[in-house]
Design a protein around this nucleic acid. Structure first.
Lengths: 232, 232
DNA sequence: TTACTTCGAGAGCACCGCTCTTGTTTTGGG
DNA sequence: CCCAAAACAAGAGCGGTGCTCTCGAAGTAA
């Protein structure tokens, strides 16, 4: 299906990739606010208007970078889980490994992290294309909890009467087979994990938390406890 | 001390306030990215260069808005706690009331929330002036936990050996008299609370969480449990 | 070869943050 | 009271931005 038809299409693919690469370089270096189409075009030796043949607007370019960032952090999480699994880790250890991997990715790619988990900068709502890659990290956590649940090693967290099962509705393929209590606790833990990382990254822990790595490890483990993963 | 010296100073104060008000209006309407000095000046019937007599740069204006936003959300939290206290609420109920107030403020002021708890947009590090107002919400939670601790109604959360007491170092006036376990759990809970609100506000709960109010109430109560506040 | 599509380049529009200069107004001390 | 000093509004201008339009060159398909 990926038969390269001619020089034209091949060139288009290459130029598109070059634009994205240069844009990602600038994003990593200066942040999303400083990323300009004109600067990217200048660096690539083309004129700014030519760039619009490949991306219809600056926001579209940013969206492409957002998708790449989601894929990048998602891959980091999946690889960390796979490594832990290979090492015969228990669910709670896998949870910790993935948390650490997510934090490490965020510290390594602060501007890309801010792009996806900070304020949504381009216009407002995320396009449909982003939801797939965006859920890779979440799915990794779900797999871990599902494994624990299948192995009967999951302590059900309490669910108050006020929270109806429908309140936490998951996309069909991922709620499958998990009790509502677990999905609710899982989603909350996931949001809280990002809150911890965001606070550290955005400077809210300045003059408050000293040893941030140790603090994060502890907090992540508490989150694992909260979703019912038994201590090792 | 606030003796108004002359018409000149009075005018300066008024114009400065008018600029901030108009800027806040635009921030609330369109977001920080769309806020422009020229548009503010235009709306106020002055020329853009005149505005630089009052704010040396766009970032300085944004910083002023950030401080106001911190004060606004801080006041909302304090008032909610005061109301709960007047109603004779237990610490855990006060905690819930403040959480709800913070979330309500965020939903009412999404762009201002994004400005202070989303990606740090102006340059990078927050100036010193912001740390005072920024800690008002956190101090509210500290007061609640301190009250519970003084009343012997606080269950100490576990602190693993890996997390030394120095790891969570607080500014002197607010760690005072609280065990390290509690401060650590408190800071984590505070970060996690912001994570929950950010996920809801930034669209990460789309197609995932249905009844967000009930979900938040439940999660906030779990956080209260995590810091050791006893159930009512 | 011919008709069609795609592309790069350039000019241009409206907007932005910010600086500098030029008069005018207000202030405060001699 | 008057006058120098300070604060001010206004305008022009610089370099930058996102984006549009047109035009000629180059690749594609008949």
């Amino acid at each position: 299906m990926s038969t390269v038809r001619g020089a034209r299409e091949r060139a288009r693919i290459e130029v598109t990739a070059a634009i994205k690469d240069e844009a990602r370089r600038m994003l990593a270096a200066e942040g999303a606010a400083k990323l300009s189409l004109r600067a990217v075009a200048r660096e690539l030796g083309m004129v700014s208007s030519a760039l619009y043949r490949y991306f219809p607007s600056r926001d579209e370019l940013l969206t492409a970078l957002i998708i790449d960032a989601y894929d990048s952090i998602g891959a980091a999480a999946e690889q960390a889980d796979a490594r832990a699994l290979d090492a015969g880790a228990a669910p709670r250890e896998r949870w910790g490994a993935v948390c650490e991997a997510v934090r490490a990715w965020a510290l390594d790619h602060p501007h890309e992290y801010a792009l996806i988990y900070g304020s949504p900068v381009p216009g407002y709502s995320a396009p449909m294309d982003t939801v797939g890659p965006a859920s890779r990290v979440g799915n990794t956590f779900i797999n871990i909890v599902r494994a624990a649940h299948a192995g009967r090693g999951l302590a059900l967290p309490p669910l108050p009467a006020v929270l109806r099962p429908e309140a936490v509705r998951m996309t069909a393929d991922f709620a499958e087979g998990l009790p509502a209590e677990v999905t609710a606790a899982l989603v909350a833990a996931w949001a809280q994990l990002i809150g911890l990382i965001s606070f550290e990254l955005f400077g809210q822990f300045n003059r408050v938390v000293e040893d941030r790595a140790a603090f994060f490890t502890h907090a992540a483990d508490q989150l694992a406890h909260g979703v019912g993963l038994p201590a090792v």
